[in-house]
Amino acid sequence: MMKTNLKYLSAIVLFGTALVFSACDDDDNDMPVTTMYEQEDQMARPAINTVFVSTGEKDMFNTTTPAQQGAAFATKFKDKLLALNPGYTTNLLGLDATTFTGVLATDVLSVSLTAPTTFYDGTNVLTGRKLDDDVITVELILLFGGPDAMANPGLTDDHVDANDKTFLNSFPYLATPH
């Protein structure tokens, strides 16, 4: 709904702009028209929209700025977390359900410019995301593993620990396509 309104609004703005330009365009000068881009997809941490956002709101999540996501989605994320894991108390980071989902609902990736960059390497937590970080297992541990990562052992590791191709040490780092 919001998106539709935005589209109408931008159509009106564009139409209005066109009228102004044509009114002033006496000598066929090429007036610089600024091209506008409208946001469609948005992502930071892996699997947030896919796991935590309900079916009817996935497009809305993608078109809500991170600064507004927390207010719009934190409660819904908490409900989803407790649906996925009714026994959730805290997790390895010591975060209770409200705190954890409050963090997740603002979908940004923290990146250190000084420390090692990793989703989680045993020491550093959420300082970036490397190509070989096993991000899904980290997220499963935080969702299902409880305060000591020992709960629900069948659900805390998908046992796919690495990519099917080796990454490169030089730019562009990603492996050649299949």
Partner: peptide, 30 residues
């Protein structure tokens, strides 16, 4: 709709050129 990292995450972007699958940020290995 539980698909993947962000692959085909939402109806408006699925199957289009704007569907982001993943984002990475890391210190250059080089």
């Amino acid at each position: 709709y539980l698909i993947a990292a962000d692959h085909i995450d939402a109806p408006a972007v699925t199957g289009t050129g704007s569907d982001i699958t993943d984002v990475y940020a890391f210190q250059s290995p080089a």
